[in-house]
């Protein structure tokens, strides 16, 4: 076990965990930030997507020791008033079915738009390809990313 100082959603946290613990499980089990989801544990489904220094990252595949001193943002920290343009677009298009993957989808979408505010259809497809939606709401996810892009 070791002590790590983490900066999550602008707050400092100290956790005492094994260094090999994926940041996903630190967020979920230690900090009880449960919006970040477990789906596969091998970086294949994107349900666990968070921002590390602003970049979309798979939290299931990054050890806590790799992210200490970095700026971590989870879905809970995407906006204070649930009004990030991506969240607004997800609301407008009523995107979710089961909703389980959607935090990861929104984190990938918001990271994309932060570096590319006007992505083409192909750029959206590439950026969102790592996020599986088992309910297959891809048509709406795509529309919502475009709407968010227009409302940045």
């Amino acid at each position: 076990m070791a002590i790590f100082n983490l900066n999550v959603n602008g707050n400092q946290h100290q956790v005492d965990v094994d260094p090999d613990t994926p940041i996903l499980w630190v967020l979920r089990d230690e900090l009880r930030l449960l919006g970040t989801k477990y789906g596969c544990g091998i970086g294949q489904c994107g349900a666990c997507t968070i921002h590390i220094d602003g970049n979309a990252s798979r939290s299931c595949s990054m050890q806590v020791s790799q992210v200490a001193d970095k700026k971590i943002t989870t879905i809970e920290g995407l906006s204070e008033e649930i009004n990030h343009p991506v969240q607004n677009a997800w609301r407008t298009h009523d995107v979710p079915q089961c909703g389980y993957c959607q935090a990861g989808q929104m984190m990938s979408a918001s990271a994309l738009l932060s570096i590319n505010p006007s992505p083409t259809d192909a750029e959206i497809e590439t950026a969102m390809r790592g996020n599986i939606c088992r309910c297959a709401t891809y048509v709406r996810i795509h529309e919502a990313v475009k709407t968010a892009s227009q409302n940045l």
Binding site: R32, L34, G35, E76, Q87, W90, D94, P96, G99, A103
Partner: peptide
């Protein structure tokens, strides 16, 4: 719209795996 939309887009713990 989905009655749970605000909780879903805010990442609230709605699912079984979120039980604590």
């Amino acid at each position: 719209g989905n009655v749970d939309i605000e909780e879903i887009i805010a990442g609230k713990p709605l699912f079984g795996l979120d039980t604590y």
